[in-house]
Simulated assay, not measured.
Amino acid sequence: MNTILIIEDDKVIRDELSRLLETFGYRTVALEKFDNVVEDIKSFSYNLILLDINLPNENGFEICKRIKENNSVPIIFVTSRNSEEDELRSIITGGSDFITKPYNKYILLEKIKRRLK
């Protein structure tokens, strides 16, 4: 069973993503503190990360860049930011895909499935 790490500071969205993914057969782990994300995630085992851009302390772009220095895990940005510049920056920093909120759950699930192949 694949495990998806959710890095999302909005509890409602975080819980919604967990429920959705678990309904479709994924195991989820969700961060609830964002003081030291890159260090904190080292204690988890996961196959894919869903990452928000707007996080307290450090933005998702910087987190993605730091994760990718030592880890090839696929990272899908799930964010309310929807400019072409944000999407380009997500690619440049190592993101595997980009989807904007509010997201279509079936498109998100398909993107996840394809990245886990």
Rank of each mutant, 00 (worst) to 15 (best):
I63F: 06
S43P: 00
S83R: 06
S90A: 15
F77E: 00
G60V: 00
L116N: 08
K11N: 05
S90Y: 01
L50G: 04
E84V: 10
E32I: 00
G25R: 03
L48A: 10
S72I: 07
E85Y: 05
S72G: 07
T28A: 11
K101D: 11
L116W: 06
F34I: 14
E110I: 06
L88A: 14
N36Q: 10
I67S: 10
L55N: 04
Y106A: 09
V12L: 08
K65W: 03
F34D: 08
S18F: 05
T93S: 05
I53Y: 02
L51I: 06
D10L: 11
T23G: 08
I112W: 05
N71V: 10
L17T: 01
K105Y: 11
G94D: 00
E62I: 10
R66M: 09
N47H: 07
K111M: 15
L109K: 04
N54H: 06
R114Y: 10
Y26S: 14
N104T: 04
Y26D: 12
P102D: 06
I91N: 02
R81P: 02
F61H: 07
L48H: 08
F34E: 14
R19M: 11
K11D: 03
E69T: 12
F24Y: 15
K111W: 05
T93R: 02
I41V: 15
R14N: 11
A30E: 08
L50N: 11
Y103G: 10
V78F: 02
I4N: 08
L108I: 10
I6Y: 04
E39R: 09
N54L: 15
L5G: 02
E110R: 13
D9A: 02
N59C: 07
E87M: 13
R19P: 00
D52E: 10
S90P: 11
T100P: 05
T23K: 08
Y26K: 06
L5W: 01
R115P: 04
I41Y: 01
L50W: 10
F61A: 01
L48G: 12
D15N: 12
K101A: 05
Y106G: 13
L48E: 07
V73L: 04
F44P: 04
P102M: 10
L116R: 04
S96I: 07
F44G: 08
T28N: 06
N2Y: 13
S83M: 12
R89K: 14
